[in-house]
Write a protein that binds this DNA or RNA. Structure first.
Length: 313
DNA sequence: AACCTTCCCTGATGGC
DNA sequence: TGCCATCAGGGAAGGT
């Protein structure tokens, strides 16, 4: 599921391919994913040049001459570059060892819903099996982006993501901390995988009420969030099922996960079996020893937490 | 206002 | 072999 690190991976992979190219043709498959009328999309972007690629939370932005073309990947969205000088992969294959789907460069198929072809050659394909993804088109203008992203919270890796701002958004509610992390109005870009990983790094049980989280724990969470996101980007994103980068290749961060998807396996730090529960309709994996339900236990040395954590082989 | 549930959608998987 | 139920979940919308 593309979260901040996966979207950033796509952005970085796509950027050198597409910046400077001008749009020659647009083809729409299932227009359900479009948040703009297909005809208007085609009409408005034809002939425009891609000025740059940026990201806000889980959104990927194509800056055009007069518009922003904005993608959200939902659960299974894939955005790949199709290079005319490279052969297409025949169909979709499963990786023999990891079982992950490896699409590589591909021709449009029944799940391809948008294709943007460039005058200089090549195309960008948006493919989305479950169709939870969305494509937006907004005209440039004063503050259009701040209006569009008005509901989004702090952006990690920017000056806006600072401890005072983070603590300020920590309202003392009854909600589980896990649910707060999934709320894009709190910190933008965190999804189920990185929420679980950040809570593990911070030593916080996902079910704990927001108001019960102590200041020192909030500070640990503040650091843990950027730690896990950074690590996700370093390993090219997490490919649990469908995620592929702009070249159609899987990421490798799934091999580095500490808790997500590891229920029944032993904790890399302490050996306790990882548990899975449901919080707010979302699965949550955690280690009951490293993330005690009652909060920090007297005598537990929190400071050594990160040093003690072994990286999966 | 805060919080919870339902819905959208397809493919993989397991039971029978 | 097929058939059906279940699960995965981001975010919007509707309900309490």
């Amino acid at each position: 599921m593309p979260e901040l690190p996966e979207v950033e991976t796509v952005r970085r992979g796509l950027e050198p391919h597409v910046v400077g190219l001008s749009i020659e043709d647009v083809w729409v498959g299932d227009s359900k994913i479009l948040q703009v009328e297909a005809q208007r999309l085609t009409q408005d972007v034809l002939g425009q040049t891609i000025q740059g690629l940026s990201r806000r939370g889980k959104y990927l932005l194509f800056e055009l001459d007069s518009h922003y073309l904005i993608f959200h990947f939902g659960m299974t969205g894939q955005l790949t570059f199709r290079d005319p000088n490279r052969p297409d992969c025949q169909g979709f294959r499963r990786h023999p060892v990891t079982g992950l789907q490896r699409a590589l460069q591909h021709a449009p198929d029944r799940h391809t819903h948008l294709l943007i072809r460039f005058r200089q050659g090549g195309a960008v394909l948006f493919r989305d099996i479950r169709k939870f993804g969305k494509v937006f088109l907004i005209e440039k203008g004063e503050d259009v982006l701040s209006a569009f992203f008005g509901g989004l919270g702090l952006e990690p890796f920017t000056p806006a993501y600072n401890l005072p701002a983070f603590l300020k958004r920590f309202r003392n509610r009854k909600l589980a901390i896990k649910s707060l992390l999934l709320n894009q109005a709190f910190v933008a870009g965190i999804g189920n995988i990185y929420a679980d990983e950040a809570l593990f790094n911070a030593g916080i049980h996902p079910s704990r009420k927001i108001r019960s989280i102590r200041i020192v724990e909030r500070e640990r969470l503040f650091k843990a969030i950027t730690q896990v996101l950074k690590r996700g980007i370093e390993y090219g994103g997490t490919s649990f099922r469908d995620f592929v980068n702009s070249d159609g290749e899987a990421g490798s961060h799934q091999e580095k996960l500490m808790v997500y998807g590891r229920q029944g396996e032993s904790c890399h730090r302490c050996g306790t079996l990882i548990q899975k529960i449901v919080i707010g309709q979302r699965s949550s994996s955690f280690c009951s020893t490293c993330q005690p339900r009652g909060g920090p236990q007297p005598g537990l040395c929190i400071g050594s937490r990160h040093e003690a954590a072994k990286v999966p082989p």
